[in-house]
Design a protein around this nucleic acid. Structure first.
Length: 225
DNA sequence: CCCTGATTCGC
DNA sequence: GCGAATCAGG
């Protein structure tokens, strides 16, 4: 197998979407995980959390006592920094506005801010954790979710050549097949995909054992051969 | 053990 | 440029 433009583009797209090298290799077919990683690096793709790349030695002397720093909410590290202001950030106490919801045990009420780890999506969505029910304390999405509408983009399918920094690069179908195209919606600023597809592309990393094979398979799944 | 990505190095 | 081998952390 050789690295055709299409395969390279699939690699890029999946890599940027956070798919693992193994998944990419499987989707591409005919290449190993190592090949994918090697190619990705040669392409200049990078900057992905590596299990073996902690950080670079820096910022050691500045803060002598960071001891009392409480666990920072993941939201603080959310990959957006412009314009958007999370609702929780505006009110110091992200307590449920309505305490009476039935399922909440009144006796455990004093238990103030229990540090629940949750991930924040690119659009600012706070995702619920695996065991959680619908978040009772979430009044409303920070931003209206876009109605998942493919809209008019289908008419003139968004081809590889139409890709630019402002349109969603979420691939639909298999590369090389006649109906393969890209989402083409306006991107979620700062991300390669639209808001809707960001929700698919950036999933909270689940424990390995809990990960399921039928994850968001943007490419329609492995091609049946 | 399994997984992950990074790196090396012969081809 | 390619990717198997190897490394190393989770």
């Amino acid at each position: 197998m050789s690295w055709t433009d299409e395969r390279i583009d699939t690699l890029k797209t999946m890599w940027e979407a956070g798919q693992t090298a193994s998944q990419i290799a499987e989707a591409l077919g005919g290449v190993s995980r190592n090949a994918v990683i090697g190619k990705a690096h040669r392409l200049g793709l990078q900057a992905r959390p590596s299990p073996v790349k902690p950080n670079e030695p820096d910022a050691v002397a500045a803060t002598p006592t960071p001891a009392s720093v409480p666990a920072v909410s993941p939201a603080a590290a959310a990959p957006f920094d412009d314009e958007y202001e999370a609702p929780a950030a505006t009110s110091p106490a992200p307590q449920p506005a309505v305490a009476a919801r039935g399922e909440a045990d009144p006796q455990s009420a004093p238990l103030a801010a229990q540090p629940v780890l949750r991930s924040v999506g690119p659009g600012g969505f706070v995702r619920q954790n695996p065991g959680e029910q619908a978040p009772p304390s979430t009044p409303a999405p920070p931003r209206r979710l876009v109605p998942a509408k493919p809209s008019e983009a289908i008419a003139g399918k968004t081809s590889l050549l139409d890709l630019n920094d402002r349109i969603c690069k979420w691939p639909l179908g298999h590369p090389g097949e006649p109906d393969f195209h890209f989402c083409g919606d306006k991107v979620n600023p700062g991300f390669p995909y639209c808001v809707a597809h960001c929700g698919h592309a950036y999933q909270a990393q689940m424990p390995r054992r809990d990960r399921r094979p039928p994850p968001p398979l943007p490419y329609g799944g492995p091609r049946v051969r």
